[in-house]
């Protein structure tokens, strides 16, 4: 009896200790994650002068003027629509083109499927950033440097390997009988795609959109070598302007960083579940 009591006691103590350690770790990392972000937003409401006097206290005279000026200096009124266009355009492009190819690979079939499909799968692990320089030379060669079409093409192209892979795997799970019976009823392949495959492939379309929207919205390395004109730039390029010579104008820099951070934070807060699921599904391979 005494022995038993002792083991349960040890068990209980061990469980309490484990919980204590678990909570400590979680709280520590949560603070480490959120405090820098909180610090940034808090200081974006201080004048640079007030920031230099005290960085750790709450703003005494909160001001919105940093935002007004950062918005102007960063040309964000131009860059926001661009970012939206690139993100929405390229994401739609990736989803549509991937699903079309996935349908052909999974349900129509041809001798060409194996080599082409495999070439996409290989592409998942090729880091687009390693092709930055040849891509820059290529868009110059094609005369599409400083054009929106170049940005869209490059973003679609870099999103396709994972897109085609996930789409093909998903569409494979759609029963053949559905497609065959539609064929017997005389439906063409594009009609089948619209009426049967597309609605059924919505989950994978959502996953792909989720993965690509945040990637493209935040992308910097490639667009940095594709455009140099302000009218074509995206938000990350505009925010980067606040490094360098503007980086000691802290108030404005912090406002610019906050402006850059908010859209994706909202996106995350709204779609957290889908994002988490999409990351788990998409990262396994790539």
């Amino acid at each position: 009896m005494g022995e038993e009591l002792r083991t349960t006691l040890v068990d209980r103590l061990g469980a309490i200790a484990a919980k204590a350690v678990a909570y400590t770790l979680m709280i520590l990392f949560t603070v480490m994650t959120l405090y820098p972000i909180f610090w940034l937003v808090m200081n974006s409401f201080k004048s640079t002068k007030e920031f230099q006097v005290s960085q750790l206290s709450m703003p005494v005279e909160p001001t919105l003027s940093n935002y007004v000026e950062a918005w102007k200096m960063g040309d964000f009124a131009l860059l926001f629509p661009n970012s939206i266009l690139y993100t929405v355009g390229a994401t739609l492009g990736i989803v549509l083109v991937s699903l079309l190819a996935g349908f052909a690979f999974a349900k129509i079939g041809s001798r060409a499927t194996k080599p082409i499909y495999n070439s996409f799968v290989i592409g998942i692990l090729i880091t687009a950033q390693s092709l930055m320089i040849p891509l820059f030379l290529e868009v110059n060669l094609l005369g599409i440097y400083n054009t929106r079409i170049a940005v869209l093409l490059v973003y679609i192209g870099t999103g396709l390997p994972l897109g085609v892979y996930l789409a093909t795997e998903y569409i494979r799970s759609i029963p053949n009988a559905l497609i065959e019976s539609a064929r017997i009823d005389g439906a063409g392949f594009f009609r089948i795609f619209w009426k049967i495959v597309l609605p059924m492939a919505m989950p994978v379309a959502v996953t792909l959109s989720i993965l690509n929207i945040s990637n493209i919205w935040n992308e910097f390395a490639l667009i940095n070598i594709l455009v140099s004109r302000t009218e074509l730039k995206s938000l990350p390029l505009g925010i980067y302007k606040f490094s360098g010579s503007l980086s000691t104008d802290y108030g404005k820099q912090f406002a610019a960083l906050t402006i850059g951070m908010i859209p994706m934070l909202l996106f995350y807060i709204i779609f957290r579940r889908q994002i988490t699921k999409g990351v788990a599904a998409g990262a396994v391979k790539g």
């Binding site: 079309l100 040849p134 891509l135 093409l153 192209g157």
Partner: peptide, 26 residues
Amino acid sequence: EGRAYWAMVLPAFLIYLLVMAFPIVL
């Protein structure tokens, strides 16, 4: 079938070649 197949595969494949394969060759 062949027409539908290529009409569906080519957009993806051509963009992929342009953005990933051609730069490697270059």
